[in-house]
Amino acid sequence: MNINLEQKFNTHRIDFELVCVLLALISVGLVMVASSSMDFAAARYGDEWLLFRKQCILLMMGISAGVVVACIPLSVWEKYSGIFLCLAIIFLFIVLLPGIGKSVNGSQRWLPMGLFSIQASELAKICLLLFFASYLARRQDAVRSSWTAFFVMVFIIGIIVVLLLLEPDFGSSVVITFTLGSMMFVAGVPILRFLLLASSGVAGFSAMAFLSPYRWERLVAFMDPWSRQFDSGYQLVQSLIAFGRGEWFGLGLGNSLQKLFFLPEAHTDFIFAIFAEEFGLIGALCLVALYVFFIFKILSLSREANSKEKLFSAYLCFGIGIMLAAQSFINMGVASGLLPTKGLTLPFISYGGSSLLITCALMALVFRVNWELRHEQ
């Protein structure tokens, strides 16, 4: 009887390690949004706690939305995956229409939702993950043997990338292409076809970087930011100064100087630089380790689902893990000077409603996968 009770408990248990690391990231995010945005909010809005309160409200909205998402069986998400693909294309199309899409800093990426705006690319991410996970699970044999199935996926990725580049949103194009390509690779797409897709993607993105004047300027500034420290390299130089000031153990929470209007986007795209300034190299490495463990737990869940032949769950979890890993790596790489400047938020840490809401929904899907795997044992 004791054995049966223990087995029943283990069957329905939650992955508390994943819960704990997620709560840790959310907590760090709230603390860093408060620390990095207070002076900016006080000068811009006359209320130093405004952005922190907004982030808390958006987090509550994200958790509420996540609860709803987690209550829906995975079979429902899989069944209507085709509709989600249509929604992804619709979102990316209507955001380009004058009078509907909202333009900020020269990019038309936002859809007004009343009290707040949400990026069309963020909505497209979750829709595309659901569709590709379903497609790869349903057409597994065709994906591995048929050129037709391969070109269908490439065609869909091509449409999405074109719509994203019209906004323009180069960063999301890279993240989505890399994520969907990785899902195709683990689904068993022959290596030669995958290399064809990868080489075409690299060539295309490289051509766009070289042919676009402002992207080329970013690349030049990335190679030698100090030669343009008061021009195109200003943001990267200020970010590197933040890292240098942090040294080993940082200046302490709230003691960053770069957030005092020296580093633009200190509470969004470059919040990792402020974290490094306040907590030093050791603190930055601890945050990186936290993300590594976080992604490891999601990918482990994908592997478990695959071992139980839950292909939709496996591909979905894998895609979510790779997407969060890619976005985290790019954000940290940009802030530390490892990659050219590109506007992508750090999941759960950066200020921003679109990223937070969609990331909460993605994690809800991960917890739904975890629950269904445990429930069916």
Rank of each mutant, 00 (worst) to 15 (best):
S145K: 00
Q108W: 09
W49I: 12
F318T: 01
F132L: 04
A242K: 10
A203F: 04
E247Q: 10
L344T: 02
A203D: 07
Q108E: 03
L111N: 03
F275M: 13
I282N: 11
T345F: 08
L180T: 02
P112E: 00
G321R: 00
E372R: 14
Q258A: 08
M1F: 12
L130D: 03
D169V: 03
L96W: 01
E6M: 12
V288P: 12
P168T: 09
S206R: 02
G250A: 15
M60W: 10
Q140I: 01
H12G: 04
S107P: 07
Y45V: 00
S107I: 05
Y234N: 13
S200G: 14
F131E: 05
C71G: 04
L163H: 11
E48V: 08
S172N: 13
R218P: 03
I126K: 06
D141C: 00
D15T: 02
Q229C: 09
A266K: 15
S256R: 14
V154I: 06
L339W: 14
I72S: 02
F178N: 08
L356C: 04
E309A: 06
L196G: 11
N2K: 12
I72Y: 04
F16Y: 14
S300M: 12
L136G: 10
V28I: 15
S103Q: 12
A198F: 05
N10D: 13
V19W: 12
F170N: 11
L338M: 15
S300K: 11
S121Y: 08
I100P: 00
G250R: 15
G321K: 01
G82I: 06
T11W: 01
F270H: 13
A314W: 04
G46Q: 07
Y45P: 00
D224N: 13
C71H: 06
S182F: 06
A41F: 08
V220M: 13
I322A: 05
A242L: 07
A364W: 01
L197P: 06
Q119E: 07
F329W: 09
S232W: 15
L96A: 00
F150I: 02
L196H: 04
V369S: 03
L164E: 11
I330K: 01
A198N: 02
I176D: 05
I271E: 04
L338H: 11
L74D: 04
V186K: 12
S117T: 13
A124Q: 09
S134A: 10
D39S: 15
F116D: 11
S200H: 12
L23N: 05
Q235K: 14
D169T: 05
W371I: 07
I157Y: 00
F243H: 08
I320K: 06
F329G: 02
S64K: 08
M153V: 08
E376N: 07
L338Y: 12
G337K: 12
I126M: 10
L164K: 14
